[in-house]
């Protein structure tokens, strides 16, 4: 078990998970998680299938709330120093500031423009100039502007798979969140599209904190500053990526990284 205090801490962490247990009904999915995610860094969550990395990710923007029996049974999740399960937390505000990109691209059956503007619209922004501006900025950040600027009113479902996923990323960053959660964003894409998205992630680290779930360890090495390794609902090790891949502290981590995992 890695000691959370061993993780480098320069400033106050943007996301902090303290002694958290999470369960679906009587089934415990995550146990005693301690994690502090730094500002403007990319943190990767890795681990074998079913280890709970997606569940952990979904804890951060409370996407698990929809599952009736799912809840945090112990500990707390703090975003920007605020316990997100507090009574006075407005879920919509939380999700505005903690964006999310899903495994499969899921643009709405609307135009490209409306997709990107959606987040702003639901948060009450109706000024056309503000919207135009935000859409352009988001599309530029997602490296889509040059490809799509002439057909913003085209249907989003007419785009290619990679473009669709980048559109979803643009949609998620249009509200200028502080944290961007990415749940295996490249798993359904070809290598070229994957590369483009990885480039984006690098750039994003300048503006926000990214937490990415990936099953591809090379990707974790390529994009992340820190890596957390989960196994059977427990956080086994959390350290700077280079360190972990070169000199894993835990035996379990080592065997997983070497592929001798059984």
């Amino acid at each position: 078990m890695s000691n959370p205090s061993s993780s480098p801490a320069t400033s106050a962490p943007i996301v902090e998970i303290r002694d958290m247990d999470f369960s679906y009904g009587s089934k415990i999915a995550l146990h005693d998680i301690q994690l502090a995610v730094e500002r403007r860094r990319v943190t990767a969550l890795i681990g074998p299938s079913g280890c709970g990395k997606s569940t952990l990710l979904r804890c951060i923007n409370r996407m698990n709330d929809r599952v009736p029996s799912a809840r945090v049974t112990r500990g707390a999740v703090l975003v920007k120093g605020k316990n997100i399960h507090d009574e006075d937390v407005d879920l919509t505000q939380l999700r505005k500031q903690v964006g999310m990109v899903f495994q499969k691209s899921n643009p709405f059956p609307k135009s490209i423009y409306e997709n990107v503007a959606y987040g702003l619209r639901v948060h009450g922004e109706n000024n056309v100039e503000v919207l135009d501006d935000a859409v352009e900025r988001a599309l530029r950040s997602a490296a889509l502007w040059d490809e799509l600027k002439d057909r913003l009113q085209a249907h989003a479902l007419g785009l290619s798979g990679g473009q669709q996923q980048r559109l979803c990323i643009a949609r998620a960053i249009a509200t200028q969140p502080d944290v961007l959660l990415m749940d295996e964003p490249c798993s359904a894409l070809d290598p070229i599209a994957t590369l483009k998205i990885e480039e984006l992630i690098h750039q994003f680290a300048r503006d926000f904190s990214v937490i990415i779930v990936t099953h591809n360890m090379q990707q974790a090495v390529r994009v992340s500053d820190y890596t957390a390794f989960l196994h059977l609902g427990k956080l086994i090790e959390f350290s700077p990526t280079e360190l972990m891949f070169e000199r894993p502290k835990e035996k379990l981590t080592e065997s997983y990284l070497r592929g001798t995992f059984s």
Partner: peptide, 10 residues
Amino acid sequence: YIDASDALGA
């Protein structure tokens, strides 16, 4: 679609 909308804070 519903996931995406929820995640954007709708």
